[in-house]
Amino acid sequence: MRRLVIAYSLYVIAIWIFFPLVYPELHTAASRYASIGHAVYFSRLPLLPMLLYIVWKNHRWKELAASLERRLSRLPAAAVFVLILVLLYGVVQLPFRLAGYWNARNEAISVQPFSDWLGEYALSLLLLYLAVTAVVFLSQLLMKKFPKNWWISLWVMLVPCVIFVVYVQPIWIDPLYEDFHHLREGQLRTQIQQLTAEAGIPDATLLEIGKSAETVTYNAYVTGVFDSARVVLYDTTIEGLEQEEVLFIVAHEIGHYVLHHVYWGTAGFLVLGLFLLWMTKRLSAVYLAKRKLQAHQLQAMPLFLLLLTGFQLISQPVSLYVSREMEQQADAYALEHAPDTVAGIRMFQKMQSVSQGDPDPWPIITWLRSTHPPMQDRIKTIKEYTENKQKQ
Rank of each mutant, 00 (worst) to 15 (best):
V258I: 15
L259R: 15
L259W: 08
H260E: 12
V262C: 06
V262M: 13
Y263C: 01
Y263G: 02
W264F: 07
W264L: 05
G265K: 04
T266S: 12
T266A: 12
A267H: 06
A267Y: 11
F269Q: 03
F269I: 01
L270Q: 02
L270W: 02
L272N: 07
L272G: 11
L272Q: 10
L272D: 11
G273C: 07
G273R: 01
L274I: 12
F275P: 00
L276G: 00
L276E: 13
L277G: 03
L277I: 12
W278S: 10
W278P: 00
M279K: 03
M279Y: 04
M279W: 12
M279F: 13
T280L: 13
K281Y: 12
R282I: 12
R282G: 06
L283N: 05
L283T: 06
A285K: 02
V286A: 10
V286Q: 10
Y287V: 05
Y287S: 04
L288G: 01
L288Y: 09
L288P: 01
K292A: 15
K292Q: 14
L293A: 07
L293V: 03
Q294E: 02
A295F: 00
H296F: 15
H296L: 08
H296W: 15
H296M: 11
Q297R: 13
Q297G: 13
Q297H: 14
Q297T: 10
Q297A: 12
L298G: 02
L298R: 05
L298Y: 08
Q299E: 13
A300Q: 01
A300K: 03
A300D: 02
M301H: 10
P302A: 11
P302I: 08
L303N: 01
F304Q: 07
F304T: 05
L305E: 02
L305H: 07
L305P: 00
T309V: 04
G310P: 00
G310D: 04
Q312C: 15
Q312T: 15
I314A: 09
S315T: 09
P317V: 04
P317H: 05
V318Y: 04
V318G: 01
S319R: 07
L320Q: 02
L320V: 06
Y321S: 09
Y321F: 09
V322T: 06
V322C: 09
V322F: 10
V322Y: 07
S323K: 05
R324I: 13
R324T: 08
E325F: 14
E325N: 11
M326P: 03
M326N: 13
E327I: 02
E327Q: 02
Q329K: 09
A330T: 02
A330W: 00
A330N: 03
D331W: 01
A332S: 13
A332H: 11
A334D: 07
L335N: 12
L335H: 12
L335M: 14
E336M: 09
E336F: 04
H337N: 15
H337E: 15
A338N: 01
